[in-house]
């Protein structure tokens, strides 16, 4: 089968101690080598095939989110080669791009077009989005008055309405009440049935075990395992118990 996402020896370097202000830049003139390089990812290679669901596991700061950002095309690799085939929908942070002063309705149109829908497509899907979010009564209220749960529900409902080829999920399933979580899980299962490619980051090994047939274990920016979920989750838990 064709690979939908392919990374070939990808490395990503961030500069720590970056100079965002002129003052710092001037001060740094007198203390050279203040900028140290930080390798978020080092020499990562993998292939994800169509309709696979892959979980990425690892400690905080190990580089998981950077992988998703590279797939989404938000950051560029320092070296290496990436190929991504298909429409990517980032569920990286729900409600990114919401404007607090605008109503739920206006934000659906705004966020929908940002995620790649046309206005006409949103017109068609509007009722579906609102129904899934269960916000019928608040849809003409500015989102600044929403609770964080409502905010998230609206964000999730828009993001899943995009009908992407590749779905990226970063730890968003941990939030929200249980009934909405169940709904999200159902939706992800539906995506799986539709043979979408899904990449999930989660600290919940239950979620990883439930959805992913493959997993990738990341430690300090290096991929130390890619393959069978049970084995890798097992070795990750063992590693954590030991340390």
């Amino acid at each position: 089968m064709e690979s939908v996402i392919e990374f070939k020896s990808i490395s990503k370097k961030y500069k720590r101690g970056r100079r965002l202000f002129l003052k710092q830049a001037l001060l740094d003139l007198f203390r050279p080598n203040k900028q140290e390089d930080f390798w978020a990812l080092k020499d990562i290679s993998f292939k994800i095939r169509k309709s696979e669901t892959v979980g990425i596991i690892g400690d905080n700061g190990s580089g998981k989110s950077t992988i998703l950002k590279l797939i989404a095309g938000v950051v560029a690799p320092t070296s290496g080669w990436i190929s991504v085939n298909g429409k990517v929908s980032p569920l990286i942070e729900l409600g990114a791009g919401f404007h607090p002063e605008l109503t739920g309705r206006e934000n659906i149109y705004l966020n929908g077009t940002i995620l790649g829908l046309t206005e006409r497509e949103i017109d068609k899907k509007f009722d579906e989005i609102v129904a899934f979010s269960e916000l019928e009564n608040f849809i003409d209220t500015p989102v600044k008055h929403y609770s964080s749960g409502m905010y998230m529900r609206l964000g999730f409902s828009i993001a899943i309405s995009v009908d992407p080829d590749i779905l990226l999920i970063d730890e968003i399933l941990a939030v929200g009440d249980i009934s909405f979580q169940k709904k999200c899980f159902e939706k992800i299962k539906e995506f799986k049935r539709k043979e979408k490619t899904i990449v999930i980051i989660s600290h919940s090994m239950e979620v990883i075990r439930m959805f992913c047939e493959k997993a990738m274990l990341i430690r300090n920016g290096r991929c130390i395992g890619f393959g069978d979920t049970k084995k890798l989750v097992g070795s990750y838990i063992k590693y954590q118990d030991n340390s």
Partner: peptide, 11 residues
């Protein structure tokens, strides 16, 4: 001011 979009979605 659009930082949340710049870091999350490709546009």
């Amino acid at each position: 001011s659009n930082a949340s979009l710049v870091t999350k979605v490709y546009l």
